[in-house]
Structures are given as C-alpha cells and as structure tokens.
Design a protein around this nucleic acid. Sequence first.
DNA 1: TATTGTTATACTCTATAACTATA
DNA 2: TATAGTTATAGAGTATAACAATA
Lengths: 185, 185
Amino acid sequence: MTTEVTPGPPGAGRDPDRSPAAADVLKGDLGWALGVVLRVYVRGTETAAAGVPGGPRGLQVLSAAVEGTAGNQGVMAQRLGIDRTVLTYLIDDLEGAGLVRRQPSPHDRRNRRVVATERGQALWEQRQEALRHVEEHILAGLGDDGPGFRELLQRLAAHADQAGGPVSTCQVIGELVAEDYSGPA
Amino acid sequence: MTTEVTPGPPGAGRDPDRSPAAADVLKGDLGWALGVVLRVYVRGTETAAAGVPGGPRGLQVLSAAVEGTAGNQGVMAQRLGIDRTVLTYLIDDLEGAGLVRRQPSPHDRRNRRVVATERGQALWEQRQEALRHVEEHILAGLGDDGPGFRELLQRLAAHADQAGGPVSTCQVIGELVAEDYSGPA
DNA sequence: TATTGTTATACTCTATAACTATA
DNA sequence: TATAGTTATAGAGTATAACAATA
C-alpha cells in the first residue's frame, strides 16, 4: 500500500528539473493556503447546514438575511460573492422552506429586502452554535494564536470587501505578463 | 443612482425580524472572510496567470510540478483540492503547452510524476514575481501585521492539510442537527 | 484483486442574455 | 433611459462510472 515514498533525491533526467528553491512552494502560496482552509471549513459546515436548502451557501444567505444590512438582493449577492441570478434561486428555495421572505422596499419598489422569518431566525441561531464548533475546531490548530488569526482575517476581509468592488487589485501586474503560452511549443 | 442607503432604523414589520445581535454576523463568519479574501486573491492572480492554460489553477498545478514533491497525480490532486479526473485535463493542457511533462515512475509504472519542463520552470519563475505582487498588495491591508497573518495562515493550512484527509472535522456537530427544513412549512 | 490514470458521459453549477416592473 | 429582479438557455465546470495498465 503506497510504498512509493520519494526514495530520496532522484538522479534527475537530462534537463534541469531541479528548482532553485522548490522546497515548499505550495506552502508559501497564499492562495493554496486559503483554499485548503476554506475547503476544510465548508466541509465542516456541510454537516452544520444539513437540511438547509442551499447547503453552506444557503446558510450564508440566511445569515445575511438575519443581519438585515443588505438593502436589496444585488448588494447581498455582491457581498456574498455570488451571481445575482443564482441568488434568486437560493432565495427561492429558502423562501419555499419558510426561512426567509422577500420584502419589497417601500421607497423603491424595485428593491427587495431579504429578511429572515421567525422560523429562519430560530434555525439560524441553532446552527450558529454548530458553526462556532467548526470554527473553533479549525482554529484549534493554531493554539493560542487562534483568536489573533481570526481578528487579522476579519480585518483583512473587511478591508478587501470594500476595495474589491471595482477593478483595483493592481494594474502593475500586466507589465510582467507578455507572452502567451497557451499554444504548443 | 442608488439613493437607497438604509434611511435609518425601519419601523419593522409585524413579527420580530430584529435579531438579538445581528450587527455584523457576516463579518464574524470565518467562512465569509475566507471567501472574500480568496476571491480577491484569485481575481488578482487571473492577470498573473494570463496565457497559462488552466488559469490560476493551472499555475498552481505548475507550482506543484516545480515543487516536485507530489509523487503521483493522485496526491497532487488531493493536495490541490481538485478531482483526479479534472487534474488529468489540466495536465493535458499544460503538457500540450510544453510546460510540464508526465514522467512514469520507474518503481511503480502506474504512477506518473508531473515535472516542469525548462520552459515551465522559466515561466513559473517569471510569474512568481507577479504573484508576490498580488499577495503583498492584499496583505498591505493589514499593515505591519501582514507577515504575521501570513505565517499563521500557512501554519493553519499545513495543519489542516494533514488532518483534512479523512473524515475528522468533528462528528459532534451531527448531534445538533436534527430536523429537516428543506420542505415547505 | 487493488490501484493509478484515462476516458466518456451525465450532471450540476454558473453566467449570459432577454424580459418585466419600477424609477 | 436606467436599474432590480426574474427567467430561460447555453456554457463551463464537475463528478460518476467504466475502462486499460500495472502491481
């Protein structure tokens, strides 16, 4: 069973496959690290979101509804990082389950405020407990530094949430990118 | 243009839609924060990965190939959090572009080690620079705490990467989950 | 028989565009 | 005319299952 354990430094082929500092490039990659943690998180919340229509994402929509700071579906979609059209389906299902309700805004009847029903509120509070368990279980890997990490992450997210709207994110990168490698050699 | 700015505390409907502490539930949500940051990251890397077949994920595969600690495609897929079958397609495209190469293991000819070609290595080094720019740009939102956050995140990811394999992630959650809310009231 | 990788197919998920209503 | 939301449809993405090669 899996006896191949990288039996030492291989003799290398004919061209320089050896990297100058290829020790743990992935571990140094911010995107990889974020992906790993996020995957573990959503897998943990899948259990906590059992029975909720949209799964973990549906539970997030419910959270946004409980929060009630969305205003309309558009900003809620942007805040959650999902398309407006798929949010429609998610809300449809949550509304069908009696967890949320579409409340047309009296000021601008095009806008619809998504609010949690009494039942949705109760369910949210119940599952919130499970979510805290998952979060603590994940952050336990950091020991005493868990709360510190949480605070930094939230600061970062709050910052990125504002700046992430338009293009921003550095135009300078384009300078470094010239050739196109999609074609064969 | 968007004159609806939440004109103060609304008078509330008939049932208690107001939450006990619904101020910023999303900001307290670890999953939401991770998602926001990850989205900003991948959007930033899309530019840095321009021309690379698989986009940001293809660049990640290339990184894994440069690292060379994968052993076979299966563990690489697990490490990158993608399905083995889709990894096949990604490697196909990268190989077609002359960036990586499938190297059958001499010890177990079922295993294929994915290694970067000279061209892939060069491209990786070039784009690595752009990736660092993106990461620094994101972490700049934390000021002096950027490096600290990076270190904590990497520790956490390395930890979760090991424990995330089997089920783990808390069985206790299941106890809290009983009813099914997928059906209508 | 078990495992690695590939392939084919079906499925889900996403997003583009067209439509309704409100402004 | 412009915007919010919905709907329909096409497209991308994903995963299940069957297969070939190797152990």
